[in-house]
């Protein structure tokens, strides 16, 4: 994984501004934008994957027991997962602090 963006200096850039590492935007944690966080009620989750399919940030991951939950490192808190969940097991809760 690449260094955080603010640690990269201009001397380290490739000629022609070519980025040689694929998908290194993952070091940028968009989760800090969030004002609401999705909370999954795991017992109600039917493991259908609709939240995963509709997440624009690709931040929904599968937990070890098979249900889906949001990776809060990248979740921007848009609420699409909560809205689209067919059983309504995701609720948006305000972030505090």
């Amino acid at each position: 994984m690449a260094k955080p963006m603010e640690k990269i200096t201009w001397q380290e850039l490739e000629a022609g501004s070519v980025v040689t590492e694929v998908g290194n935007a993952r070091v940028y944690e968009t989760g800090s934008w969030r004002s609401e966080r999705p909370v999954v009620e795991a017992s109600q989750c039917i493991k259908c994957g609709v939240c995963w399919l509709f997440c624009p940030d690709a931040c929904i991951v599968r937990a070890s027991d098979g249900h889906f939950e949001a990776d809060l490192t990248y979740c921007k808190g848009c609420g699409i997962c909560a809205k689209e969940c067919p059983v309504g097991c995701i609720t948006m809760i305000a972030e505090e602090g």
């Binding site: 940028y28 968009t30 624009p56 940030d57 490192t73 848009c78």
Partner: peptide
């Protein structure tokens, strides 16, 4: 990948 700077709920990024 994740970590792109699209607005919240961007269906274009989706």
């Amino acid at each position: 990948t994740s970590g792109h700077r699209a607005c919240q709920g961007c269906a274009e990024a989706l």
